[in-house]
Computed example of a mutant assay.
Amino acid sequence: MRPVRNEIELGAALRDRRARAGLTQAQLADRAGVSRGFVIDIERGRRPRAELNRVLAVMRALDAALSLVDHRTPSAEQALSDLLEDS
Score class of each variant (00 low, 15 high):
residue 34 V to L: 01
residue 47 R to E: 09
residue 44 R to Q: 14
residue 83 L to A: 12
residue 31 R to A: 06
residue 61 A to L: 07
residue 54 R to A: 10
residue 50 A to V: 07
residue 56 L to W: 09
residue 56 L to H: 10
residue 38 F to P: 00
residue 11 G to P: 04
residue 58 V to D: 00
residue 68 L to R: 12
residue 18 R to H: 08
residue 33 G to C: 01
residue 10 L to Q: 00
residue 47 R to V: 11
residue 7 E to D: 14
residue 75 S to F: 02
residue 57 A to G: 08
residue 70 D to V: 12
residue 52 L to G: 10
residue 75 S to H: 02
residue 19 A to T: 06
residue 3 P to S: 10
residue 24 T to P: 04
residue 2 R to W: 11
residue 79 A to F: 00
residue 25 Q to R: 15
residue 7 E to W: 14
residue 13 A to S: 03
residue 72 R to A: 15
residue 51 E to G: 02
residue 81 S to M: 09
residue 47 R to L: 14
residue 16 D to K: 14
residue 43 E to H: 08
residue 18 R to T: 01
residue 77 E to R: 11
residue 21 A to N: 01
residue 70 D to P: 10
residue 46 R to M: 09
residue 81 S to G: 03
residue 23 L to Q: 06
residue 31 R to G: 00
residue 83 L to H: 05
residue 44 R to P: 02
residue 11 G to D: 06
residue 33 G to H: 04
residue 15 R to C: 04
residue 16 D to C: 07
residue 74 P to M: 01
residue 28 L to Y: 05
residue 11 G to H: 03
residue 49 R to D: 11
residue 45 G to V: 07
residue 55 V to I: 14
residue 51 E to W: 04
residue 35 S to R: 03
residue 27 Q to H: 06
residue 44 R to D: 06
residue 41 D to V: 03
residue 76 A to V: 05
residue 73 T to H: 07
residue 25 Q to S: 07
residue 22 G to P: 05
residue 59 M to N: 04
residue 65 A to G: 09
residue 75 S to A: 02
residue 70 D to Q: 12
residue 11 G to Y: 08
residue 79 A to W: 01
residue 27 Q to R: 12
residue 37 G to D: 11
residue 49 R to T: 11
residue 45 G to F: 07
residue 48 P to L: 08
residue 75 S to W: 00
residue 20 R to A: 15
residue 7 E to F: 15
residue 56 L to M: 13
residue 17 R to L: 12
residue 67 S to I: 15
residue 64 A to Y: 01
residue 9 E to K: 07
residue 8 I to R: 15
residue 5 R to I: 01
residue 20 R to P: 00
residue 23 L to T: 07
residue 61 A to E: 08
residue 16 D to T: 09
residue 76 A to D: 14
residue 80 L to N: 05
residue 25 Q to E: 08
residue 56 L to V: 11
residue 49 R to Y: 03
